[in-house]
Design a protein around this nucleic acid. Structure first.
Lengths: 341, 341
DNA sequence: TTGAAAGCGCTAACAT
DNA sequence: ATGTTAGCGCTTTCAA
């Protein structure tokens, strides 16, 4: 492995001068600079990132710690964040926590996080106290479904509001028995499901329509398979419905397939609304009405917060920022019967 | 920041003893061990991964460098690799190259790669010579569509064979004009599109069916939108077809939507086959026939190769392994008209 | 404009 | 069973 001192020797200067040239610091004659760069090229020298980081304390890497990657949501966010980061001289590195408490704690341990200049973390099982206890020493932006007490900068989606809007929209269009695919899950933490279920109930309360608890069906991972099975279960149990709000577009996709299988027409018999506005949702049969969380805006807000901390130095306690992003509805065929427009 | 020497002081032992205890090395009385662990807990000490790595030369991290993450393919692979890695005491870290030459070169630079104990890289624009020139000093497994000359361990999918199988299957079922969604792209490197297009042609040659070049339509990123537009273009141009082989399931999904829009029935008017066997493909309307690359097997092979290098030490030149994984067909509704079974 | 010394936090190798 | 010394490759600080 060729190191800085080798370059120094080759160029006939000191290590320090090599370091200065490589890092574009001023104070090196054009002549010396040329000799150094020449030696670098000749030896194929590349800095040792680990050593640099140990000494200088920065790596240029931003860690993005997410529950999982199957599904377009985090993948898209990662791409977006990376683009923004690149333009500021950072790059984004992705880690999967697996959505387990154990996995999350491992990923946020000081040891694992220390190599990053900053971290964006989307907690699922873990709470603010856990994050504090992890003893992270770089700027952190939390990202999430759930409201977390104000110890860290925090960007969150207005899940309750989004779900309320989706539900109200169907109620307004005449639906009276709206299945909630993936709903409930009230235990302890404010999970995505809990919050969106809350919005669903709020819309019903607002419209004076009672909620039939049998319409609320679980969908473990909110994926396509779960959505499919949830609708099949409703059908098997003889629970009738004229609307379906799926907690994710993936689940909605499975629901659409199940509805087709049991011979229910969308939107004539059942209106369907999803959540996420995945790129594919526009191409489903029928095209899916869904809630768009405006992820690009969210990504911008996240990077903005993180870069501010990175550039002003300290994690600065006390004055944490909490940004709530709201979702807008995208109306497509799955709620819009051709006749009524 | 609390460091090892602080713990040593607190426990009344030397740094070295702390190091030994923390790393579970033998040679420390139960008593000392207890005192050290106690001090660690009291001070909330966590090792500095950067320092450890500089000294010991290993980080426990495996880098997975992929072109992009939108789409289930790499996400699923990442999850799978991570699970396998975890069981061997490593964890997988994901980096997005953006599928640009520039992005790939940045990601494989020795500087960026050096923090990993090993690297799995899926090149798109870059070739073996570029990888060699990058001067990577950790074990590398290349992963890919394309055959790369044998300087590195390399796991690849039999793209030609898979595409040939998909095409032959439709030909056997009577299709004579099969659109190739996302096909062509013959320039220099053996891209996924080039190879799968080759398989498409090979199947035609084998069956003695001529290829109408107008049936081969581009689909820039092989995503849902591209697939949709490709079929719309064919339709607009008045090119008739009775089969469609889409280079990815995502593109197939868009194709299905487009066929519905122009009033062509699947599979009665047009048979459709995709490639990837995404989890969602089973729930499309109609359910999609597709090529399953058996990614889980592929992930196992990759990890096996990498761990072998990691555990036996040296990147070992000369005796590189090249594994070719073949895809199997999964038959579903999009090619199987109910009448004929 | 350049360089020497010191040290980031840890561990390998060798004492004791 | 425990401690001492040295040094991983770099950059900060200060002197020339």
């Amino acid at each position: 492995m060729v190191k800085m001192s080798d370059v120094a020797l080759e160029a006939g200067v000191s290590k320090m001068t090599v370091s200065n040239v490589i890092n574009g610091r001023p104070g090196a004659s054009d002549d010396t600079r040329a000799r150094v760069l020449d030696a670098v090229a000749r030896l194929g020298y590349q800095v040792n990132a680990t050593a640099r980081q140990l000494r200088a304390g920065r790596s240029g890497a931003i860690g993005l710690l997410v529950p999982h990657l199957d599904g377009p949501y985090y993948s898209h966010l990662a791409a977006r964040l990376d683009t923004l980061a690149q333009s500021r001289g950072y790059h984004v590195i992705l880690e999967r926590t697996g959505a387990s408490r154990e996995g999350e704690l491992a990923a946020i341990s000081a040891e694992r996080v220390q190599p990053y200049d900053g971290v964006v973390f989307s907690p699922v099982q873990v709470d603010t106290a856990d994050v504090r206890r992890a003893g992270i020493e770089v700027p952190v932006v939390l990202l999430g479904e759930r409201r977390l007490s104000g110890e860290f900068d925090h960007v969150m989606m207005d899940n309750v509001g989004g779900a309320e809007l989706a539900t109200s929209y169907m109620l307004e269009r005449g639906a009276r028995r709206i299945a909630l695919i993936g709903g409930r899950r009230e235990d302890g933490v404010d999970s995505m499901a809990t919050l969106r279920s809350r919005g669903y109930r709020k819309a019903h309360a607002g419209a004076g329509v009672p909620v039939d608890e049998r319409l609320i069906v679980d969908a473990a991972s909110y994926n396509t398979k779960d959505g499919y099975e949830a609708v099949m279960r409703l059908h098997r149990d003889g629970v009738s419905f004229d609307g379906a709000f799926a907690l994710t577009d993936a689940a909605a996709m499975g629901a659409l397939r199940a509805l087709a299988d049991v011979g229910l027409r969308v939107p004539d018999d059942v209106q369907v609304v999803g959540f996420d506005n995945d790129a594919e949702s526009e191409y489903l049969i029928p095209r899916l009405t869904t809630m768009d969380p405006e992820n690009d805006l969210m990504a911008e807000r996240i990077m903005e917060l993180l870069l501010q901390r990175l550039e002003t130095g300290a994690p600065a306690v006390g004055e944490v920022v909490e940004a709530v992003m709201s979702a807008r509805i995208v109306v497509r065929e799955s709620t819009l019967s051709r006749v009524r427009g």
